[in-house]
Amino acid sequence: MSTKRAMAYHYSVTCFIYFLLLIPLLATLVYSLCDQWGATILPSGFTFKWYIQLWTDPRFLTALYHSMTLAVGTLILSAVLIVPCVFVVFYYYPKLDTGLNILTLLPFAIPPVVSSVGLLQLYSDYPLLLTGTPWILVGCYVGIALPFIYRAVNNNLRALNVHDLMDAARLLGASSTQAFFKLILPNIRKGLMASLFLSFSFLIGEFVFANLLAGANFETLQVYLYNMQQNSSHFTSALVISYFSITLILTLLATRFNR
């Protein structure tokens, strides 16, 4: 009896928190689906017109395409660069781990506004004229993804008995490279994928670097959202909901795929 009441209590608390968190999103959703919501308490005029307007805007589609390719490209590059690096440090040069650890703190320690000033100075001139191109964003975003991937991969490696596994594989005739691809990689896959999704949702929502380093030359979703501020707020609501749904669907798909 008492456990039933306790359960009911737990449920109600959970639901309440969910509700609190969902309010802003629900309000935005309703707002994006109505014609007007000004003088009256309840919205009026249910319509899809804001969504139609948004999804037929070629500028929006380009921004979406930019954001997607940028995030996916960055993550592929990060995975290819960072995973072997973390493994090599973990397995062959454990003493370098401290250095790597400090390196992963830098993106958090230095505010994006500050580091973008430095990046602008460095890459606005020959021979490295990169500002205004997506390439500077790719480089910068790899740095942002580093801590997420490093943490996940490193924790996974720690949980795995890497040294004995590698030794066993070598005695069975496998080279270190074979052992890495056949044994280590499959065993850290889950953690790696989780960190990639996390980085993905982070990168897709990144605004400061995108705006300062590439700006109008390479408009991403966030920059587009910012530039559309003076538009009807029903329109921007539709944009926010679309943006949110895309991230949600992709994450769900990826989680399902990863199982």
Partner: peptide, 20 residues
């Protein structure tokens, strides 16, 4: 000689089975 080329089998205290 590298361990791969020795034709020696080894069983570890930790088993070292491949979990995947």
């Amino acid at each position: 000689l590298a361990p791969q080329k020795r034709d020696i089998g080894m069983v570890f205290q930790s088993y070292a089975l491949f979990p995947n």
